[in-house]
């Protein structure tokens, strides 16, 4: 088994093991080995089918930390905005799903395969649909560029270097090495992506919002709102820990000024946003 195949297998194992209690998420070991073989056979990248399965498992975990807000109109609204934006990208036909999490903290998440979440706390700080679009577009870029998938693969490769891999896959679920890898996978959302991934998501997110016909300044406006808040606020702690500071992100977005200005006069849709997200 090549190092690459093993690394990919470890990544898949880590995520599958994340859900031992739920039969529907328990991928059996033979299937995982097959998956790893397929990954090795192909280009070395995780195939789209696996990407979607991994992403669903990760989404289920996020939903275990905070459920969806009990507001069907809001959920459907965010899905329409998000799917419209995703339709403007190079992966329009992923099974895109968007959700508002019932959590007061200000944050947004993406998992592989097209699952995007934004917290009710962050939605509450937005002023119009263009701002929502800016945040969703940022998260969509994480999916398009497979930022999380690559981070998990990287973690698995590090583990590979430190572990007796041939015995690894045969170990019981509860062995320390296995737990270590599982923890690394699940820690992604509290540790954060590389700064370069976040700044790329900002730059490309602005483009995707502009493609959707929105005021391209939606994302910068949200960043300015965050920048004006007290960084000690507990509702911001995790986002500020896992993202570059808003001021740094705003500065980095100056590179995008030509695009921002060319599409600054597009729709903000404050009334439609208020009608659904502010009821």
């Amino acid at each position: 088994m090549s190092a690459r195949r093993i690394a990919a297998l470890l990544a898949v194992l880590a995520l599958a093991a994340a859900a031992p209690a739920q039969a529907q998420f328990r991928l059996d070991l033979n299937r995982l080995v097959d998956t790893a073989k397929n990954i090795g056979k192909a280009t070395g990248e995780i195939a789209e089918k696996e990407e979607i399965e991994i992403g669903s498992d990760m989404a289920a975990r996020l939903l275990g930390a905070a459920p969806l807000a009990a507001d069907e109109a809001l959920q459907r609204y965010v899905n329409q905005v998000g799917r419209w934006l995703a339709s403007q990208t190079e992966r329009p036909d992923l099974p895109w799903k968007f959700g508002v999490l019932e959590a007061p903290q200000l944050n947004a998440f993406a998992t592989p395969g097209g699952n995007i979440f934004v917290t009710r706390g962050l939605v509450a700080q937005m002023n119009n649909e263009a701002e929502l679009a800016g945040v969703l577009a940022h998260e969509i870029v994480h999916v398009l560029k497979k930022h999380h998938l690559k981070a998990i693969q990287k973690t698995a490769q590090v583990e590979l270097a430190n572990t007796a891999v041939t015995t690894f896959a045969r170990q019981d679920r509860n062995t320390p090495a296995r737990e270590k890898l599982l923890a690394a996978g699940s820690e992604l959302y509290s540790r954060g992506l590389d700064k370069s991934d976040e700044l790329e998501a900002d730059r490309l997110g602005v483009v995707i919002a502009a493609r959707g016909g929105y005021d391209a300044y939606g994302l910068p406006a949200v960043l300015q709102t965050l920048q004006a808040m007290n960084p000690e606020d507990s509702g911001l702690a995790l986002m500020f820990k896992t993202h570059p500071a808003p001021a740094e992100r705003l500065e980095a977005l100056e590179k995008m000024q030509p695009t921002l200005d060319a599409y600054a006069a597009q729709k903000q849709l404050a009334a439609r946003f208020a009608g659904t997200a502010r009821r």
Partner: peptide, 30 residues
């Protein structure tokens, strides 16, 4: 809600995942 500790200790919620899928919009609807 969602802080680092809650994320680390979260158990998968299959029922919420199903709801998430139910709210998805088609390209045409969008």
């Amino acid at each position: 809600g969602l802080d680092a500790e809650q994320l680390a200790n979260a158990k998968p919620n299959a029922a919420e995942l199903k709801k998430l899928q139910g709210y998805a919009a088609s390209r045409d609807a969008a």
